[in-house]
Design a protein around this nucleic acid. Structure first.
Lengths: 119, 119
DNA sequence: ATTAATACCTAAGAAATTTAGGTATTAATT
DNA sequence: AATTAATACCTAAATTTCTTAGGTATTAAT
């Protein structure tokens, strides 16, 4: 047993779209619930996407043309698979580059690179 | 002449307090306007803290006991120097560690370390 | 004399997320 | 067999954080 320490919610803000888009880049198609579980698994529960944040985000990505939806019925339960569009592929690259650059700037600003303990 | 490309505002959200606290850690005392200029200078204008965001943040930090204020009059113009408290020193360390850890997680999640072009 | 820079501030609005619900199916447990 | 947990979708009010757009006033530069 261990105590799970999530990141404070402010930090995660602003990165949700990038996380979702990047997962779709690597996985061809994913559905909402799957995304929440995958992020939880990959981050050892340190980032947990809430459904109240995810679903509006997915709908926004669809509206702006970065993803398309494919409905699949598993028995009577519906699943909505999200798939990157060509535009979405470009958007992911832009977003990831920007976040990468931003993190580099933050590392410099907080003087993290000179620190010995980059654990 | 060059075109300045700021980061999209979503990214900067959630890091403002950490940036301010960390600057105070390195500079003993700073005033608001000085902070905006220092961040602009250090980030080559890629991060520009607006005063509408900064002043409420400084007031919040004061309220929660992480900084104290020292008024100084330069002629007739007032300057409010902000200084880290002992509690503030602890808060900075916590915040910076958390952000550092978060960025490491994001690098893993976005698969940035395997990329060749870590420019 | 006028503009730019310095230096503080607030308040309405926007954006993103949390919180707190809701519905329904399927699998696991008691 | 009945209850709980997990799967799978959703929305809407409230909260947080920031942007935008003001405001005041002093000092330096044009």
């Amino acid at each position: 047993m261990y105590i799970c320490v999530m990141y404070s919610s402010e930090l995660i803000k602003g990165t949700l779209k990038t996380i979702v888009l990047n997962l779709l880049k690597d996985n061809d198609k994913m559905y909402g619930y799957e995304i929440t579980q995958k992020v939880k698994e990959l981050t050892d529960s340190k980032i947990q996407i809430t459904e109240g944040a995810l679903y509006p985000t997915l709908h926004a990505l669809e509206k702006q043309g970065d993803v398309t939806v494919e409905k699949v019925y598993i028995g009577k339960r519906v699943r909505k698979y999200y798939i990157l569009t060509d535009q979405g592929v470009t958007t992911v690259a832009d977003r990831v580059n920007e976040l990468s650059d931003f993190m580099k700037t933050m590392r410099f600003l907080l003087d993290l690179d000179s620190s010995v303990q980059n654990v």
